Simulated assay, not measured.
Amino acid sequence: MVSWAVELGEFDIQVRPRPAIKSQALADFIVESTVPATEPTIIEETRGPIEQMTREDMGPDSTEQSDEIQWTLHVDGSAGKTGHGVGVVLHGPDGFTVEYALRLDFTASNNEAEYEALLAGLSLAAELSAGKLKVYSDSQLVANQVNGAYEAKGPRMKRYLQKVKVKLQRMGEVEVLQVPRDMNNRADALSKMASEETHDFGTELTEILSHPSIDEREGLRI
């Protein structure tokens, strides 16, 4: 009532009692206030026209928010004269982040290093039960081969692609996208650090892959 008094106080309005039967007033109230059975009933505090909020103004409920939680994965592989390395950065809900560096203790091409990065990232995401996952790689070849735009040529590329597809089939909703290198900086830096044998990683999770992932004798050591 106070809110309405403030809103209407600036107008010269006179209020006259309406001669009405009590039963008619009750009928009018029921007609105006009844919500159809097919819609959920929402009980709100009575407010003035400025204070009332719709469900859209209040934002989605907690169920809708949880359905939209999405993990992001940045992967990059590096192959050079100093060595070969993999960088993985996984972002989850509530600011959760894991950085993972993997040194390749074998000779690999740049494309093979990129595939090793993707496989390492997918394995990490699967271990952490990541739900919806968007994977970002700056390798045009790997992203397009995984998405079916490019054909894998050569027996090793075909084996890498097949292994990635097997992992994707065991996971939930995963989307692999190509991004420019400047949008993949942290994973790129980790991969380069992993390729340097003398680098001190500090607190980053670091392992050494002694054999290619497509070989049966693959093995990891810290």
Rank of each mutant, 00 (worst) to 15 (best):
V31T: 12
Q52M: 13
K165S: 14
L190M: 08
E99W: 05
P40L: 04
V2D: 09
G219M: 11
K163L: 15
T82F: 08
D200K: 15
T107K: 12
G9T: 06
S191W: 00
R103A: 08
L205E: 06
S123C: 05
G148A: 03
S66T: 15
E114P: 13
T97S: 02
G59P: 06
N111L: 08
R55C: 14
R103F: 09
P155W: 07
E216N: 15
H84I: 07
E68A: 09
D188I: 01
H84Y: 11
G154F: 11
M53D: 11
Q65M: 08
A20W: 09
G80V: 10
S139I: 02
A130S: 10
V15K: 14
L205M: 10
S213A: 15
P19M: 08
S139D: 01
L128N: 14
E151I: 13
V146S: 03
S3L: 09
E32H: 15
N185F: 13
A126D: 07
T46H: 14
Y150P: 05
F29D: 14
G172R: 05
V86I: 02
E44N: 12
G77L: 01
T46M: 13
V31M: 15
Q70P: 00
M157R: 01
T206Q: 04
A152H: 05
M193T: 07
S129C: 07
E64L: 15
N111P: 10
V75P: 00
H199M: 06
E204A: 09
M58D: 06
Q24S: 11
A187L: 02
N147I: 14
Q145T: 05
A143D: 05
L90I: 00
F106T: 05
R186Q: 04
A143Y: 02
D182W: 03
